[in-house]
Simulated assay, not measured.
Amino acid sequence: MNSQNIFFGSNIKFLRERRKMNQESLAEKLSLTRSKLNALENGHTKAPQPDDYLRFSDFFKISVDSLLRVNLAKLSELKLRELEAGNDVYMTGSNIRVLAITVNEQNKENVEYVPVKAKAGYRSGYSDPEYLSKLPRFSLPNLPKSGTFRMFPTVGDSMLPIPEKSDIIAEYVQDWKSLKPDTLCIVILKGEQDFVFKQVTVGKDGTLMLSSLNAMYEPYIVKSEDVIEIWKYRSFLSQSLPSTANGQDQMMKILLNVQEQVNKINKNGK
């Protein structure tokens, strides 16, 4: 990455001055020496440690990603307050963080299952290892070792031919912008909104278009600040067999049959 596009040093200086703190007082708050803080602010530390990023992120309540890649001095006061409230302006997931996980006795990541009754609690406990440890968890073969996976139940028929009440196994997405258009995902939304299983297309304006496989349902747009997490579809478990044809497929077959009949009539009439 071009170092000219990294704003960590200037950002922590800007945030310090915004709070009307001098270097001595901030360094004391963060258990740093003043000389190290000065070096970080002026870019004299070529390779800050991960602890340094997390220390400032936790103190200022701003994600590591934004501290690194957004020039905070150019944002309005309203945007800065939104940022501090958790509405991240740099859309690569809600923030760069260590995703809370659980592991088995062999120190391998479990696949946690989020049942329907646990959905409400998940919105507040998704980053709490203690909360996650109370969820059902298990191991599945043939999952990539590099990813983190969870299982989510679905409701409704908006994703037919994937059957209703399927359990979706999905991989955590850190960088939302890496998603290709119409990627199948579980999207965790804030507030009273449900978890949704949709095709996700990330817009240039930071919005996400969510569309169903079932053409009976219209696509709709959500703002990035309304999204907590995105999990990319990998597979599903179901006790039902997928439908071989939905209503749209059947209509298409009828239309094709009519077209064939018309073609035969035209051919016989010549």
Rank of each mutant, 00 (worst) to 15 (best):
V103W: 01
R97W: 05
G247S: 13
L237T: 12
S238V: 06
Q261R: 15
H44L: 14
N214Q: 07
D167Q: 10
L179N: 07
I6A: 05
P136V: 07
L241I: 12
N110F: 03
E105G: 04
L140Q: 11
Q248W: 14
F8P: 00
D175P: 01
T45A: 06
P242I: 07
E171S: 12
S146W: 09
G121F: 04
S76K: 08
K29I: 01
E260M: 13
F7G: 01
K204D: 11
P219A: 11
M21Q: 13
T183W: 05
V202Q: 06
N107H: 12
F197Y: 08
Y53A: 00
A47K: 13
I186L: 04
N110D: 10
E192N: 13
I96R: 01
S224N: 12
N11S: 09
D51M: 05
V116Q: 12
S124T: 13
D249M: 11
S166W: 00
I168K: 00
S66E: 09
G247M: 13
M216F: 09
D51E: 15
L132N: 00
P219M: 09
F59K: 01
P136K: 10
V111Y: 02
I221E: 10
N142W: 06
D194R: 11
K253E: 14
F236E: 06
N142T: 06
A170S: 13
E112S: 08
K204R: 09
S31I: 00
W176F: 09
K46G: 10
H44G: 08
K165M: 07
Q239R: 10
E260L: 13
C185I: 04
I265A: 15
D58G: 03
E109P: 06
F152W: 02
Q4F: 12
K46M: 10
E82V: 02
R16E: 00
I62K: 01
I62C: 03
Y131Q: 04
Q259A: 15
P181R: 06
T183H: 05
G121T: 05
P163M: 05
Q248R: 15
K117Y: 09
K74M: 09
K61W: 02
L241M: 14
F149L: 06
Y172W: 14
E164R: 07
P141D: 14
L80D: 03
K264D: 13
N257K: 15
Q49F: 04
L75N: 02
Q248H: 15
M159L: 07
D205V: 08
V70C: 07
L241F: 11
R97F: 10
K13M: 08
A27V: 02
P115N: 10
Q174T: 11
M251S: 14
S146V: 08
G43D: 09
G9F: 03
S238T: 13
